[in-house]
Design a protein around this nucleic acid. Sequence first.
RNA 1: GCCGCUAUAGUUCAAUGGAUAGAACGAGGGACUCCUAAGCCCUAAAUGCAGGUUCGAUUCCUGCUAGUGGCACCA
Length: 552
Amino acid sequence: MEERIRKAVSEALRGMDAADVAFVVERSSDPAYGDYATNAALAAAKPLGKKPRELAEQLVNELRSSTSLGPTSVQKIEVAGPGFVNIMLSREAIALAVAEAGAQGPVWGKGTENAGKHIIVEYSNPNAFKEMHVGHLVGTVVGEALARLIENAGATTARDTFGGDIGPNVAKALWGLRKNDVTDPTTAQEMGTAYAEGSRAYETSPEAKEEIDALNQAIYAGTDRELMELWRKGRDVSMEEFRRIWKLLGTHFDFEFFDSDTTEIGVRVVGDGLNKGVFEKSDGAIIYNGEKKGVHTMVFITSHNTPTYEAKDIGLAFLKEGRWPSDRSIIITGSEQAGRFKTVLAALADIAPLLAEKTVHVATGFLKLASGKMSSREGNVITADELIHSVIREASEKNADPLVAEQVALGAIKYMILRQAPGSDIVFDEEKSLSLLGDSGPYLQYALVRARKILAYASDGASGEEEPAEPYAIERLILHFPEVAARAARELAPNLLTTYLTELAGEWNSFYAKERIIDGEHEAHKFLLARAFVNTMTNGLTLLGIPTPEKM
RNA sequence: GCCGCUAUAGUUCAAUGGAUAGAACGAGGGACUCCUAAGCCCUAAAUGCAGGUUCGAUUCCUGCUAGUGGCACCA
């Protein structure tokens, strides 16, 4: 519908000599203003040198006779305010959209904007030999939602994650394992402890620092068989743990890339770049001088001849393209890496412009504790697993069924993350814990559960009266779902969908409280409406990766 | 010091340059003999400061203030 209106407005503008004007068609901010509004007349007033309201009147006349709009879909078109054109859909058009929502099931809301596109999404990126902390949790939840939104818009997607399995942090963990005579690590915790010990020793003991640096070199060299055996075992244990958490979160990856996969190609590409003058030597290291492009200068290959994360990122870009050629590559990381990615992408643009051009970096915010920042030194770091289980425990108080408790807890956590615009920090108050009411995941889940219960009664023939002449408010909301999902995908902003679903749940709850559905007036129509709501909410939550419980 | 991000109600968050800035929690009040009260209805409450661009600025630009992240051999 939105598209048809856009087309009609566009045609009308062409007839008014204003074909180039940029305008928007959007959901009206207030139902009193109709279903859709456009600022086209306001936007065209300036270049045409006419008064906005006069233009708006003219536009309204054009639209009234527009064939693109169709004669039966619009009830009212009028000028309002400074020159907005408000469009109110007809009862039939609204009923049609609701009927579609009810009939289409899982397909309701699917788009075609990304049809034929191959898009690879990288996220989560936990490092082996360390535990997955809440920062990775944010990235994982946002990444999964974005991947689903992009798919919903018609793209073929691949998911990949890129984890550190080599470098100084790994050397620290291996040093700690060796010191404790662990040759066969079996738990992630064991590794976390070893890493913490190694880290501490690195800071406090010069001999340990020397040993760890030597270990780091030895891992890159890869010739010490015993060491490499321990390294491989440790990495496997970490990955097993990560896969368990990903599964819990409803994520899986088509590709799991490691630092160690990217070093060779990264070193080679940076070496080529050095010959071409993209990189330069400085104090024995190979650097990219970013100042000319207004980004930070960074080291890509250290003077010890080991690649830094930056060189590995370059290598990864080539590796990904080789494995799964894409039209677009999206990388999701914490916002602290934003500056680093600017340098990496600037360098990549000099080496492989097309590759750089299609790569987008999305920054997610930090999950901060209300009591203060998390730091490993303060000992108040929360792992992803701890957070999830503490919320599950809380949800269990109200839900005897462990499956439901888990679904509610995950819904609450994911909602907390996805309600905000990506990039802004998320404050988690561990005192108040997670809200399970109001503006929360369970609020949406609860609305869905109650509506489903209604449908369970709806099976046998409802009394068949006519639909009411005036549509219920929720009908006008349901019809916008496909547009909202499309926009969330386009703007890589899951929060747009989250906000919409919250409004939708609120509208359903009002409807539910006010209207008698079973054995009420217009029963058949209300059942249809309930089905349309259930489909919209189910599909919407699924796009966000939020579980849809059967009962609560 | 340089570069980036942020500043909206008591609190946590929304709002492609548009109409009366929208929710939730908290506060105060209310309804309910009926489909799940994790719910519904009502009230009070906000754009950091100073300029600029614009018919119109929470949104764009400049300065200030306050936070926060990054800044070459860590990831």
